[in-house]
Design a protein around this nucleic acid. Structure first.
Length: 432
RNA sequence: GUGGCCGUAGCUCAGUUGGUUAGAGCGCCGGGUUGUGAUCCCGGAGGUCGCGGGUUCGAGUCCCGUCGGCCACCCCA
C-alpha cells in the first residue's frame, strides 16, 4: 500500500510522560512545592512564549542559548516571539509588568525549549522547577535559595550530588577582573583550543569553563575571580559561604564556574550529580542577577534564583536508586458478569462517595475481569454475578494475593469498602 | 551545529559468510466444564525487519540518502 500513513511521532528531542511515570512527576512537583512554599514562595504561571526581546536582553545576545538555540518565530501579527529557553527572564518580566510588593518570592514549573542536538538528559523541550526572589541584596537570601534546592534534592533521597559555587562580581569589580583575565588569556592565545583562541577578547569568560586540555592548562593558571572581588562582593560571598556552612549545605568553590547567561552577578552556583555518568550531569543551577530587572525596563532591583531540570533529576534518582514510582492504588475494581448495569452504577456510587474505583468494560469473562482487577492494583474486587443480583448483594474480595471474600448487602458496599481501605481520602497520600 | 555508534513484534533481544512461509522471553487476548485474579498448563493475535532508493537471481543481512535514538564536542537543566 503506497498510501499507508506514517505513524505519527513526537518531534525530535521531545518526549511524552505517560502513566505511571507521570505519577512520579506529580510527586516530584509536590515535593518541590512543599519545600519552597514552606519558605513563602508562591506559584507563578507565565506564558511559555514571550516577546523575543525579553530573552535577548536578559540572557544576552552573545549567549549560546539566545544566539543559536532559541525557538524564535514570527506570529501572524508580525511580532517576534520566542518559546522560553529558561524560566528566570519570564518571571522577571512578570515582575516588571506587575510590580508586586518586595520582597517578591515566586516558584514555577515549566517546560523550557532549546534547539540543541538531543541526547539522554538533553532535550529540545525539557522541564524546569525554579524559584526567583526579588528585592533583598542580602546574602542570607542567597543562602536561603541555595539551601532550598539542597533540601529539595535531599527530600527525594538524592545524596550523591555536589554544589559548586563562585562569584562573578558586580559592576565595580568585574571590569577589572575581565581585564586581568583577558591579559592572561591573550598572552597565551596560541595555546588555547581552536574554539576559543579567536574569541578571548570578545568573551574571555567562555574560555574559563572550556573542558579541552589546551584551554584547561591555560585557564588553570588564570587569576581567580574571588581574589579580585571588590570589598562588598567579597564580603557578600564570604557571608554566603558561612551561611551554607551554618545550615550544613556542603559546597566547593569552582573558580571556573561562569554561567552562560549575561544577567548573572555575584553568587553563581550549580548542582551536579556524581551518580550521572554523562556529560549531562548538571541537575540545577542559578545565581544572583542584580541587573536583570533594569535590563527589562524595571527599577534597579536585586534578585536571585535557580532552575532545576526535572528530567535530569529523575535520571539522577534512577542512578541512585531512590524516589521510586509509587502510583496511588485504586480502592476497588468492579466485576460484573450480569450485563454491566451493576458495574456502571456501583462505580459511580462509590466514586461519588470519594473512593477510587475502576470497572471492566465490554462484558468480558469473570476470569478476565479479575485479571484486570489484579493488574490494576486495586485493593478490593467487588463482584456482581447472578447470585449477588438476586440477593441484592455484592461480593467483596480482597486482592493482592490474599483472596478472601465476603458477601455484603448492596446498601452496605460503601461502608464495607471504606472499612477495608481506610475512611479518609487516600488520594495522593501514599506516594508523598 | 561537528564527529561517531545504533534502529528486528507493545517491551528486552536472537537472527549464522545475503538464500525457502523472520524467532525467543516478557506482555497482551482466549481456554483449562457448570461464576474467581496473582502460580501452573495449553492455545492465539501481533512484525511496513525506522523510511526511501540502489547493488544482486535473491537483502533484516551490502551501499547511499533520510528520519529517529544514543555517545562525545558545543552548551546547559
Amino acid at each position: 500500500m503506497s498510501d499507508r500513513i506514517e505513524p505519527a511521532r513526537a518531534p525530535s528531542g521531545t518526549h511524552d510522560v505517560l502513566w505511571p511515570e507521570s505519577a512520579r512527576w506529580e510527586a516530584l512537583l509536590a515535593h518541590f512545592a512543599s519545600v519552597v512554599e514552606s519558605a513563602g514562595y508562591g506559584l507563578a504561571h507565565t506564558p511559555i512564549f514571550e516577546d523575543a526581546r525579553v530573552f535577548r536582553r536578559g540572557i544576552g545576545e552573545g549567549s549560546e542559548v539566545v544566539g543559536k538555540e532559541m525557538y524564535e518565530f514570527e506570529d501572524r501579527g508580525g511580532r517576534s516571539l520566542a518559546l522560553r529557553p529558561e524560566g528566570t527572564a519570564s518571571l522577571v518580566r512578570a515582575y516588571v509588568q506587575h510590580r508586586p510588593t518586595l520582597p517578591w518570592k515566586a516558584w514555577y514549573a515549566t517546560p523550557a525549549f532549546r534547539y540543541e542536538r538531543p541526547q539522554a538528559g538533553r532535550y529540545r523541550q525539557h522541564h524546569q522547577l525554579g524559584v526567583e526572589a526579588l528585592g533583598p541584596a542580602d546574602p542570607d537570601l542567597d543562602v536561603e535559595v541555595i539551601s532550598l534546592a539542597d533540601d529539595f534534592y535531599r527530600s527525594l533521597g538524592l545524596r550523591r550530588f555536589k554544589l559548586r559555587i563562585n562569584s562573578m562580581g558586580d559592576g565595580s569589580c568585574r571590569p577589572g577582573y575581565l581585564a586581568l583575565l583577558t591579559d592572561h588569556l591573550v598572552a597565551r592565545r596560541e595555546e588555547l583550543c581552536v574554539e576559543h583562541a579567536g574569541r578571548v577578547d570578545a568573551n574571555p569568560l567562555r574560555a574559563l569553563d572550556c573542558k579541552r586540555d589546551e584551554c584547561r592548562s591555560v585557564t588553570g593558571g588564570a587569576p581567580h575571580f574571588i581574589d579580585h572581588l571588590c570589598g562588598e562582593c567579597r564580603g557578600a560571598f564570604d557571608r554566603v559561604l558561612a551561611g551554607l556552612d551554618a545550615l550544613g549545605v556542603a559546597w566547593v568553590i569552582d573558580h571556573r564556574l561562569v554561567r552562560g547567561f549575561d544577567y548573572y552577578t555575584r553568587t553563581c552556583f550549580e548542582f551536579g550529580s556524581d551518580a550521572l555518568d554523562s556529560a549531562q550531569n548538571g541537575i540545577g543551577g542559578g545565581g544572583r542577577y542584580d541587573g536583570l530587572v533594569e535590563m527589562l525596563g524595571g527599577p534597579s532591583t536585586p534578585g536571585i534564583g535557580f532552575g532545576l531540570g526535572i528530567e535530569r533529576i529523575l535520571l539522577a534518582c534512577d542512578a541512585e536508586g531512590v524516589f521510586p514510582v509509587a502510583p496511588p492504588p485504586l480502592d476497588a475494581y468492579i466485576i460484573d458478569v450480569t450485563g454491566g448495569d451493576a458495574a456502571r452504577d456501583l462505580s459511580a456510587l462509590l466514586r461519588r462517595a470519594g473512593l477510587r474505583v475502576e470497572q471492566a468494560f465490554d462484558g468480558r469473562s469473570m476470569k478476565s475481569q479479575l485479571k484486570s482487577a489484579d493488574r490494576s492494583g486495586a485493593r478490593l474486587a467487588l463482584i456482581v454475578g447472578s447470585d449477588e443480583l438476586e440477593q441484592d448483594a455484592v461480593t467483596v474480595r480482597t486482592m493482592r494475593g490474599v483472596g478472601e471474600q465476603v458477601q455484603v448487602p448492596r446498601a452496605d458496599v460503601v461502608a464495607a469498602v471504606r472499612q477495608t481501605v481506610g475512611s479518609t481520602d487516600p488520594i495522593r497520600k501514599e506516594h508523598l
